[in-house]
């Protein structure tokens, strides 16, 4: 982990609800509790992996941090300053500092815009550079992410998925941000390209002193890139620990089930896989008590009644479970 342990981002009890409205009077009937009470500090220079199954609120969490989704409740502090609930205009200065790499490299680039123009736009919005300087910066960016200067003249459809993702990365680093949210940044790529992109992300982290919030459902990738890993289940935090400790000694029953699902290249020996029963509960009808009690093999009465506390069990190892 980085020696500098000052948090760059302090997320405290963040909630993001999407209201379900009645069709006629637009009254809120209930809420989809996409992010439910997430508290975590992201340290300067680290890579915090966020894992969980589809629909567990990882992406919504990432977007809420960047202000792309409005905050329902809680506080988000960037370098000690509150940014939760700021208006679009007030957020503009922070947007330079926090960027995002998107999941789908095909959907995240405007098909009618040349790559050069797309990358230039960040400079038009945030700097007062003249056209020549902007073009120069775009060329440097392209080279930095492993593309060529002349690619600036091309349209997105002329690139492969891996190249497009490099363009997405170039756009994210163009304003020299300090925090980048990688929302499933490599999930849409095939495995060989994945490795290159991860390599590039690691390189850039060193050269630009970046902090990553690396959202993924791919445990292998997360294990490889993360310093610490946050496990989310149904919008809530289940476990947070340094990467090696989480993978060697998971405490939360959900984490254990998740890790036992990683395929292992061992012939002949059947791993005792923990199979979870049932489906992910509907976030619009949030379970009482511990959100995991409906599927947990260890659940008992207390789990059904009481929400487990988010507590530190060992140094740097947080877990929300009555059984630990």
């Amino acid at each position: 982990m980085s020696t500098n342990t000052k948090p760059i981002l302090e997320v405290d009890q963040v909630k993001k609800y999407f209201p379900i409205k009645s069709s006629f009077l637009k009254r809120t009937i209930s809420n989809v509790q996409a992010v439910e009470n997430v508290s975590v500090d992201v340290l300067e220079g680290e890579t915090l992996g966020v894992v969980g199954e589809s629909g567990c609120g990882k992406s919504t969490f990432g977007r809420t941090i960047l202000g792309l989704e409005s905050l329902t409740d809680g506080s988000i502090k960037f370098r000690g300053e509150e940014i939760g609930g700021l208006s679009e205009n007030q957020l503009k200065t922070y947007k330079k500092e926090m960027q995002m790499i998107f999941q789908d490299p095909y959907a995240s680039l405007n098909p009618r815009q040349r790559i050069g123009d797309a990358l230039e736009e960040a400079f038009i919005i945030h700097t007062k550079l003249n056209k020549k300087d902007r073009k120069e910066r775009v060329k440097n960016l392209l080279v930095e992410v492993g593309l060529k200067e002349e690619h600036a003249e091309r349209y997105p459809h002329e690139f492969s998925g891996g190249q497009r993702q490099r363009i997405g990365i170039a756009r994210a680093i163009s304003l020299n941000p300090s925090l980048i949210v990688c929302d499933e940044a490599v999930s849409a790529l095939d495995v060989s390209v994945q490795a290159q992109i991860i390599q590039l992300l690691k390189q850039l982290q060193k050269s630009h002193q970046l902090t990553y919030l690396f959202i993924s459902h791919d445990l292998g990738v997360v294990k490889h890139i993360s310093d610490r890993v946050l496990v989310m289940y149904l919008g809530a935090t289940a476990e947070l620990a340094p990467s090696d400790r989480l993978f060697s000694n998971p405490l939360h029953p959900y984490t254990r089930a998740l890790l036992s699902a990683i395929p292992r290249p061992v012939v002949g020996r059947k791993k005792d896989r923990i199979r979870l029963k049932g489906e992910l509960p509907n976030a619009a009808n949030y379970p009482s008590g511990c959100p995991f009690h409906t599927r947990c093999p260890l659940a008992h009465e207390q789990c059904r009644q009481e929400r487990p506390e988010w507590r530190e069990v060992k140094e740097g190892h947080y877990v929300a479970c009555h059984e630990v």
Partner: peptide, 23 residues
């Protein structure tokens, strides 16, 4: 997603509408 990407860059609504939605 490219509209969201422009929002995360801090582009104004006018810019998004004219340069990204309309074309």
């Amino acid at each position: 997603e490219y509209i969201l990407a422009m929002k995360s860059l801090g582009a104004s609504n006018f810019r998004i509408l004219v340069k990204h939605v309309l074309p």
